[in-house]
Design a binder for these strands. Structure first.
Lengths: 194, 194, 194, 194
DNA sequence: AATGAATGAGAATTCATTCAT
DNA sequence: TATGAATGAATTCTCATTCAT
C-alpha cells in the first residue's frame, strides 16, 4: 500500500515536472532567458509560481538543463541518421525535415539562444563551447562523403558545405513566424549535385 | 553670437544622441529588449545613466525608434538596388553581400528580434505588422523578374523564391557568431539558374 | 480542507491590505501624494516595500482607491444623518462633530488634497469633478430646510449657507495641528438662528 | 559708464530674481515643497532651469526664504491694522478681507503648508515654532479688547475667540478652488455681538 | 505536493544640482 | 547673466526566491 502510494506520488512528481519543463521550453525558446519570467512559465504550466521551486532550484538551472537536453537530443538525432536505410541524400532530406519540424524547433531555438544571444549561465557557455557546430559537422561528414562518392552531393570542400548548410537550416529554423519557411526540396538544392 | 552657440549645442546634442543610439543598437541586437539593461547601454556609450534620460524617455521608446529606423533603412536599401548599374544577378549579389555585411547586421538583428521574439512595445508590433516580409518581396519582384527573363534567375514561382531567399539570408544573418557564415556565391546558388 | 485554508489566506490578504491602507491614509493625509514615499508607507505598516506591490499596482493606484473610498464614506455619512433621531440642529451638531473628529480627519484631508493641491492621477480628477462640494450641499439641503422651518437654522439662502458652512468645517479640519480647533458650539453659531 | 552698466545688471538681477520668486510662490503654494519641481518654477518664470541656481542655492533655501517673507508680511499686516482709522469691527473686517484676498492667499498657503504638512527644512520648522498662531493672537488682542469694550465684539474668552477666528479664516483661505468662499459678512458673524 | 504571502536585490526612472560654454 | 549638457542620489517598481501553512 505504501508502495502504491509512493509510486503514485512519484508519478505525479514526474508529470508535474514534465508539465513545467514543457512550458519552460516553449517560453524560453520564444523569449530567451532574460525575457522569461518564472510567472510566465508557471502560468503556461497552470501551476502556482511557488511550485516551480519544488522542482527546480533556479531559473538558470532549468535553462541549463534544457540546453543540455537539447544538445544531447540533437547529437542523438545526428547519430540516428546512420541507422536509417536509404541513400545519403535521402538521409539528408530526413535530417532537413527533422530540423524544420515544428516539434524540434523550440529545442533548436534554445540552442541558438544559448549560442548567440543573451547572458547565459557559465555552465551553458561551457556546454556550448564543448559542442561547437564543428562537432555536428564531424558527425555528418561520413554521410556527406558517401553522398559525394555516389554523386548525389555537390563537389567541393565538404566541411564547409556541411557547416554552411547547418547554418542555413538553423537560420531558417530560428526565424519562425513572420518569415516564409522554404520547402525542404528548395533547401536541398544547396547540397545536391545537379 | 547666439547663432554660433546654438549650433554648437545642437551639434553636441546630436553627437551624444548618436553615441547612445549606436551603443543601444549594438546591445539590443546582441541581447534583445529584456536582456538589455540601461546600464549596459550607458556603459557602452561612456555616459552616465542620467544622460540617457536626457535624450530618451524610456528604454522602450528608444527600442521603438531604432526599429523604425531599421525598417526605413532596409526599405531604402532595397530601393537603392534599382539605381545601381549591372545585371539583375549582380544586383542580387550586392543585396546578399549587403545583408551579410557586418555593419548592417545589428539593424537586421533588431528587426528580427522585433519580429519574432520578445515582448515588444505596442508601437513596434504595429510597425512590424505594417511592414511584413511580403513588402520586401514586392519591392524585389521587378528585379527578380528581369533576372528570370534574362535567364539568370532560376525558374518557378518568383514570390516564393524571393521570400525563401530572404528567409535564408535573414536566418544566416541572425545567427552570427558560433556558426559558419556561408560564402555569398554559395548562397546565390539558391537563385541562380544553372 | 482547501476551504479552511482558502479562508485563512483570504483573511491574511485582507488584513495585510488593510494594514497598508491604513498606513497610507495616514501618510498621504499628512504629506500628500508627492510627499509620500512608498518607503514611508511600508515602514509605517511594518512590511517590506516588495509587499506593497503585492497588494497595489502603484502609489497612484492606491491614492486613487483611497480617494474613492473617502468619497463614498463621506457620502454615506451625510446619508446616515437622516436616519438619526433628533432635531435638525442636533443632527447638524453631530455632523460637525463627526467632521472634526480625529478619526475621520485623514479621509477628509485626502479629499482636500485631491481637490486642491498636487498633481493627481487622472481618475482622481474625474472623481473629484463628479462629486463637487455641490453634491454634498444638495444632500444636506432637506435637513437644513427642516431646521429653518423649525426656526432652528438662520434665515437666508440655504444653499449658500450650507456651502459656506462646509467650507469652514473643511478648512478647520484641514488645518489640524498648529491651529486652535474651535469648539463645536462656536462653529454652530454660524448656522443657528439666534 | 561702468556705473550705468553695473546698475543695469543689478536691475536685471533683481528683476529676474523677482520673476523666479513670484513663480515659486505660486507653485509652492499650489503644490507644496515636495510637489514642486525646479523645472515647474523655471517654466512658470520662463527661464532655463540652470538660471535658478544663479539666484538661489537650493530649492529648500528658496522655500525657507519665502516662508520667512510670508511671516514678516503677515506680522506687518497685523500691525498695520492699528494704524488705520475706524472702529475695531471695521478693522476686523479689513483684516478678514485682506486674508481672503486673492493676492495674499499664496503667501498664507505657504505658511499653512509650512505649518502642517510636508517635510520642511529645519530652519522653516524653527521659524514656524517661533511664530506660532499664538503670536498673532497676542497682536490682535488689543484690537478685539477694544471691540469688546465698545460692545461690537461678542463676549467671552477673547484669546480663544481670536484663535478660533484665525483658524476659520486660515482654513477658508487654504481651501481655495473647489469650495465656496463665504462672504466676509458671513464670517464676521463669528465675532460680532448680536 | 501545492499555494501564495513575504522579502530584498537590482533595474528603471526622476530630479536636484553642477559645470562648461 | 544665461543655457542646457551632464551627473548621481534617491525613488519607484519588478521579479527571483524563500517560507509558513
Amino acid at each position: 500500500m505504501p508502495r502504491l502510494k509512493e509510486d503514485q506520488l512519484h508519478k505525479i512528481y514526474e508529470e508535474r515536472k514534465q508539465q513545467i519543463t514543457s512550458a519552460a521550453v516553449k517560453i524560453f525558446a520564444q523569449r530567451g532567458l532574460p525575457g522569461t519570467k518564472i510567472s510566465m512559465i508557471t502560468a503556461e504550466a497552470g501551476v502556482s509560481h511557488g511550485l516551480f521551486y519544488h522542482y527546480f532550484k533556479t531559473k538558470e538551472e532549468l535553462f541549463t538543463s534544457l540546453v543540455r537536453e537539447a544538445i544531447e537530443a540533437s547529437m542523438q538525432e545526428m547519430d540516428n541518421l546512420s541507422q536509417l536505410t536509404g541513400s545519403p541524400i535521402e538521409k539528408i532530406k530526413i535530417l532537413t525535415q527533422g530540423m524544420l519540424d515544428e516539434s524540434g524547433a523550440p529545442y533548436f531555438m534554445l540552442l541558438h539562444r544559448a549560442r548567440n544571444f543573451e547572458e547565459v549561465p557559465e555552465e551553458v557557455s561551457q556546454l556550448i563551447q564543448k559542442y561547437p557546430v564543428d562537432v555536428y559537422v564531424k558527425r555528418l561528414l561520413p554521410l556527406f562523403e558517401e553522398g559525394q562518392q555516389r554523386g548525389e552531393v555537390t563537389d567541393g570542400d565538404l566541411e564547409e558545405l556541411i557547416a554552411s548548410y547547418l547554418t542555413i537550416l538553423s537560420g531558417v529554423m530560428v526565424l519562425g513566424k513572420g518569415y516564409v519557411t522554404p520547402q525542404v526540396d528548395t533547401l536541398l538544392r544547396f547540397v545536391e549535385k545537379r
